[in-house]
């Protein structure tokens, strides 16, 4: 049993554990140990925490007007008034990085959550049903993956009016395809396992098996995938912003700041390009590192080193 399910190692099942004492074999402890062994993953998590603090606590300390433009102050270099200068319409760049970061992070997290959950349900139903239902559901995924996502996104964006909610839904409406495939493959493997057979023998219905026995075992894979999805969503929002299809102003995100900044690439306004560029790259790299670390930590085989 312990070999099969990462959620129930033998030690936990055999004897009651004193809640006051830390159990060295607890799955959470070994999970954290493997994760923390990966220096890059640890660094990535620290960067993510710092970015959250910067975006959500920063505006409390560093107050700026991010609603009204101020053309008289446009494209000024860094000064004591504007630590990172101002952009082409006079917004304070440092303050805008905070405000834009909030939207970037929230959009990316929501996309990942939505895409992972929908992909989980779709993939699990598909893999668990098998036969014709499975084929049909997977051909839908194949067909949607065949048209490059960016083309479909531009299409949907041209039809729908962009707003934060629509942007999240539109990006998620394509991002769930990859996790759906992943979950299906996992479920196909899991559903032939002994404990599923045993549950079925004990009279458990398909819904119970799906929710009680299969979901907990794919959650790890999904967490890894969702982490990569966050990074991808940041890049997708940036790409759409560059194509003029992001979130309309005065709202900002790092992608739109970067793409506005690069229009002035030859004017020497470095503060309009590099800070936003560094933010995007840093957060994407950080989430990728954390995803790699999570993948190792979720992998049960590595825990027994």
């Amino acid at each position: 049993m312990a070999e099969l399910s990462p959620m129930a190692p033998a030690d936990l099942v055999v004897g009651p554990v004193d809640p006051g004492e830390e159990n060295p074999h607890s799955p959470w402890i070994s999970f954290l140990r493997v994760f923390a062994e990966n220096r890059l993953a640890l660094a990535g998590s620290i960067v993510i925490v710092l970015f959250f603090a910067f975006c959500f606590l920063g505006p409390v300390v560093y107050r700026t007007n991010q609603v009204a433009t101020n053309i008289a102050q446009a494209s000024r270099g860094p000064s004591p008034h504007h630590l990172l200068g101002t952009d082409a319409v006079g917004y304070d760049v440092l303050g805008r990085l905070m405000a834009g970061g909030q939207i970037t992070l929230v959009v990316a997290l929501l996309v990942a959550l939505l895409a992972a959950s929908f992909g989980l349900v779709w993939g699990a139903i598909s893999g668990f049903s098998g036969g014709g239902v499975d084929s049909l559901m997977m051909r839908v995924v194949d067909a949607a993956l065949a048209i490059p996502g960016l083309f479909l996104l531009i299409f949907l964006d041209a039809i729908l009016r962009p707003s934060v909610v629509i942007l999240v839904v539109v990006i998620a409406s394509l991002a769930w395809l990859a996790p759906a495939r992943l979950v299906r493959a996992e479920v196909l493997k899991l559903r032939t396992m002994g404990y599923v057979e045993a549950a079925r023998g004990a009279g458990a219905g398909p819904v119970t098996i799906l929710f009680r026995h299969l979901f907990p075992n794919v959650i790890g894979t999904m967490a890894v995938n969702a982490t990569f999805q966050v990074a991808d969503a940041v890049l997708t929002v940036a790409a759409l912003s560059f194509l003029g299809l992001g979130i309309p102003p005065p709202a900002a995100n790092w992608g739109s700041m970067l793409s506005n900044g690069v229009s002035y690439v030859f004017a020497g306004y470095w503060w309009q390009i590099w800070p936003a560029g560094v933010c995007v790259v840093a957060i994407v790299v950080a989430f990728n590192f954390v995803g790699d670390g999570l993948r190792d930590a979720v992998d049960v085989r590595l825990r027994r080193r």
Binding site: A231, L235, A238, A239, F242, G255, L258, S259, V262, V265, F266, I273, G277, V280, V281, V284, V285, N288
Partner: peptide
């Protein structure tokens, strides 16, 4: 490779323009 992978493609293009054209 992490850096190239994590850069928005238009940003990578701009960096290349700055380096190899400007």
């Amino acid at each position: 490779s992490f850096l190239f992978y994590s850069m928005p493609s238009f940003f990578l293009g701009i960096v290349l323009i700055i380096l190899l054209s400007d």
